[in-house]
Design a binder for these strands. Sequence first.
DNA 1: TAGACGTGGAT
DNA 2: TATCCAAGTCT
Length: 299
Amino acid sequence: MQAISTPPPHLSPVLADWYRSGARDLPWRRPEFHVQFGAWGTLVSEFMLQQTPVNRVIPHLEAWLGRWPTPTAMSTATPAEVVMQWANLGYPRRALWLHRAAIEISERHGGDVPRDVDALLALSGIGDYTARAVAAFAFGDRHPVVDTNTRRVIARAVDGRSQPGPAARRDLVAMDALLPHADDESAVFNAAMMELGATVCTSRAPKCDACPLATQCVWLSSGRPDTGDGRRRQARYEGSDRQARGAVLKALRHSDAGEIPLDEVIHDWRDGAQRDRAIDSLIADGLAEASEQSLRLPH
DNA sequence: TAGACGTGGAT
DNA sequence: TATCCAAGTCT
């Protein structure tokens, strides 16, 4: 009689040792950080880290938490203030979502970041990754935290593929099967998988020589084949609507009065229709608003 | 589920 | 110079 599923590889012990011996010293991994900001600090850091490199996040995180050290403090800010503070971090809708989440936390949870994953998932801008990252890293609970790094490590070490496929719910199940049973060990395992993917098992030019999983990695032992499951190509940015939106928002952030006459908003943009489209979509997204004959950040 | 959504550093 | 890529979420 064959087992229903193959037993999971025991990656945890070697990975935990590797993580404890050489993980990067990042602000949100320091005990003082949790003492000072609690789960709110973790939540803000995870928002900023969505699709944005660690090195760009760090200075912004410190400035943000210095200004708004609690959800309730941030809930009193205006959208214009949070979009301004978000500066050039990218994906400015995250600033709006984070602001909204702060308000929701104040209203629904008495100003305390909830511990329950479903309650976290119900907050604006929080999805499968961020909800479980907060529950695991801020509260120490056992949940599969799946990001692009985790998925890549599993794709290679376990499945023998060069790149992960498109993100899917099944990734949560796969990660859960690898997770140690104890809460504290599972939190370290989650962090270690992410750290490995970010620093060793990178998308391009992985450093297999330095990998703690080298002897167990299915992909490496099979000769690092290109299994062809390439990612979707990212849409061209140059000349895109996204670029136009970015230019409009940058102009608003840099305008002294926080306001620009409508006919002067990136007036030298090559494609007038695209400029108008950008302005309209920013207004629709709540990232800008028209008042009189001018455009400004949302009040 | 595929596409939209910023920005800047690395290759 | 062009493309890739980064601790995702929403529609």
